[in-house]
Amino acid sequence: MTTERTAVIVGGGIGGLAVAVALRRRGWRVEVCERATEFTEIGAGLSLWPNALRALAALGLGDRVRELGAVEAGGGVRDRAGRWLARTDNAEIERRFGMPLVVVHRADLVRTLVEALPGKTLRPATTVTGIHEDGDTVVAEHDRGSLRADVVVGADGLRSTARSLGWPGARPPRYAGYTAWRMITEPLPAPLASGAANWGRGERFGYTSMPGDRVYCFATATVPAGGAGPDGEWAELRRRFGKWAEPIPTLLDAVPEADVLRHDIYDLPPLPGYVGGRVALLGDAAHAMTPNLGQGACQALEDAVVLASCLDRAPDIASGLACYDRRRRSRTQDVVRRSARLGAVGQWSWPPAAGARDLAARLTPSSATLRSMTPILGWKP
């Protein structure tokens, strides 16, 4: 008789919930420890590229998530005056990669993942404080006791406790040099014709359609870490972007003042490995990245599917975890580097450099841009 295998997952965000779903589909018993009092997400919009939709399909959730999202006809890059520098066609993305680009609310995706799990697997208000191996098992200590399992998965984000416990020599997250604002408008009287990312000098403002005639907006500015707008974040956005080309002023007018989220942007220096003993890191805990490629959650979903597959197919736990590390570390660290480079270019503020950047974007065919994304978007489980 085969003994049921068990996993404790530290962190109940998108990556942690996704790996819980993936392992349960393969017969594992899982428990998800989340320090917050409920499993939810306060974030704004989230882009799910074709690779993420394939991962969700492997979890049995692809159709449901696509029903919750919006497929935008197209997008691209504009300058701050609204002139197109580069354009993309979602139909061409779907033709090339078999899946469209879908935008969902983060909370909707988290809720979908939670609903795919039995309530007994979820442990809210549970803070993991220690992890240690005990023979052929691993023990996760928490503020109300301990849990014993075959594997512990650290999916607890940028400031991961699991990483600090198991990788004490790892370099800390590094500030990318700019902060970001995220927000969702109230329903608009007319839908957007297309989304865009507008590039300025040391500043960017992007927007994309969401279900219900709402629009997800994001902005960045090169500023020291830890700052805050003296008159509030909405006023700071109005000051910086209120005179940019339409529809940006109109979109800002439609954003509830209290709903603007601000987060400094960090990524994670490369780790020498994502596995230590019977502990594996996943998502931001392993490879936190800047949002410039829209791949943070997408890569976490890939991680979840690959980790479950490797553990299921390998002859033992150690081989399965080694398979996961081998298949995920190089790929995700490459995405981290690519996203950081794109963000650095997007934030250029020296006028000659920004002008050269905009000219290069205008001269680059959209087909070449999509071709360069093939290694990322073409991923299949």
Rank of each mutant, 00 (worst) to 15 (best):
T2V: 14
V8C: 01
I9C: 04
I14L: 10
G15V: 01
G16E: 02
L17I: 05
A18N: 07
G27D: 07
E31Q: 14
L46C: 06
L46D: 09
L48C: 08
W49K: 11
P50N: 01
A52W: 08
A55R: 09
A57S: 15
G62Q: 09
V65E: 14
V65H: 05
E72F: 15
V77L: 15
R78H: 12
N90A: 14
E92W: 00
P100L: 02
P100H: 03
P100W: 02
L101Q: 15
H105Q: 13
R106E: 04
L109M: 05
V110K: 08
T112R: 13
T112D: 14
T112W: 11
L113S: 08
V114Y: 08
V114I: 06
A116P: 10
K120F: 13
K120D: 15
K120A: 15
T129S: 14
I131Y: 07
T137R: 13
D143H: 04
S146P: 13
S146M: 13
L147D: 02
R148D: 13
A149M: 00
A149L: 02
V151T: 06
V151A: 08
D156L: 03
R159Y: 11
S160N: 07
A162Q: 06
W167I: 12
A170Y: 04
R171S: 13
R171I: 10
A176S: 10
G177N: 01
R182N: 12
P187M: 01
G195L: 05
G206N: 02
C217E: 08
T222H: 12
G227D: 14
G232C: 05
G232T: 03
L237T: 00
F241A: 03
W244G: 04
P247K: 07
I248A: 05
P249M: 01
T250F: 03
T250Y: 04
L252I: 08
A254V: 03
H263Y: 13
D264V: 00
D264A: 00
I265D: 09
Y266K: 00
P270R: 10
P272S: 06
R278Y: 04
V279N: 11
H287W: 06
H287S: 09
N292R: 08
N292T: 11
Q295M: 04
A297E: 10
D303K: 01
A308L: 00
D312T: 12
D312C: 05
R313Y: 07
Y324I: 01
R327N: 12
R328E: 10
D334C: 12
R337H: 11
S339F: 02
S339N: 10
Q347I: 07
W350K: 13
L359H: 09
A361E: 13
L363F: 04
L363S: 09
S367L: 14
M373P: 14
L377P: 11
L377D: 14
